[in-house]
């Protein structure tokens, strides 16, 4: 990996909830076009790390450089930073008071200050991409989980994010719907979108990512290419963790 096109540089990131140290000294970099998968046991701090990167959680130490600028500085304009760093949640978090189309337009209009016509065109383009353009008039409550998640991805994409964060995007889905969401994500990865994906889908992490991070107890225990992590893991903890997924 080269160093010029670093988008995110996380160094010595710490996060405490009270006296509970959830993140201890996290260091990693994300370059343009990287697809970083984050794996690890439940409670190891994966979600907390993503939420710190998106400023939904305030970190308690260290720095997160976005194009060299430290976004953990309290003076940073969090909303305009977030507009460039998209997030897809485990529970979709679609706006329940809006239709599918409105969900994908509202951010463009209110935040990016686009015209309605432009916003609609772009929303449709991305809804088409995730295969949801037939559902523009539906409300979130009328959709299945997999459909909701695809709309949530379209909503995030419509903001033209430079990097997209996924927090277990398929964990709340019925097994038969996991595939349709992973398919969309695979397409995006293929098109060069920069992504950080927290996932329990080991096959996806192995086949799609350019880089894999294994977290345990608030630390990055091991990282490397998918080949290094999945085929020749160095740490015993990594091997133990992966063994649990072998026969799945």
């Amino acid at each position: 990996m080269c160093t010029e096109n670093v988008i995110l540089e996380v160094s010595h990131l710490k996060k405490n909830f009270g006296n509970h140290e959830v993140l201890k000294d996290i260091d990693f970099k994300v370059h343009t076009g990287d697809v970083v998968s984050v794996i690890g046991a439940s409670g190891s701090g994966k979600s907390t790390m993503l939420r710190c990167i998106n400023l939904l959680e305030t970190s308690t130490g260290g720095s997160i450089l976005y194009h060299g600028e430290d976004i953990t500085n309290p003076k940073i304009d969090a909303p305009s930073y977030r507009a460039k760093v998209g997030m897809v949640f485990q529970n979709f978090n679609l706006f329940n008071n809006m239709t599918v189309l409105e969900n994908c337009m509202v951010g463009q209009i209110k935040v990016a200050k686009k015209s309605k016509a432009q916003a609609r065109e772009k929303a449709l383009q991305f809804l088409q991409k995730v295969g949801m353009s037939a559902y523009v008039n539906a409300k979130p409550r009328q959709l299945s989980g997999g459909q909701k998640q695809r709309v949530a991805i379209a909503r995030a994409l419509a903001m033209d994010p430079e990097i997209l964060l996924f927090d277990e995007p398929t964990s709340a889905l019925d097994p038969q719907m996991v595939g349709e969401v992973l398919e969309v994500m695979t397409t995006l990865a293929g098109e060069g979108l920069t992504m950080i994906v927290v996932t329990h889908e080991m096959a996806f992490a192995r086949d799609i990512s350019s880089h894999v991070i294994f977290m345990a107890e608030g630390c990055i225990r091991e990282e490397g290419t998918p080949k290094q992590i999945f085929e020749e893991p160095k740490e015993a903890e990594t091997r133990e963790f992966l063994a649990r997924f072998r026969n799945v």
Binding site: M87, F89, L94, A112
Partner: peptide, 11 residues
């Protein structure tokens, strides 16, 4: 989650 979804797109 509604507030977080809104914040995540920059609102």
């Amino acid at each position: 989650g509604q507030m977080e979804g809104a914040k995540a797109i920059g609102m």
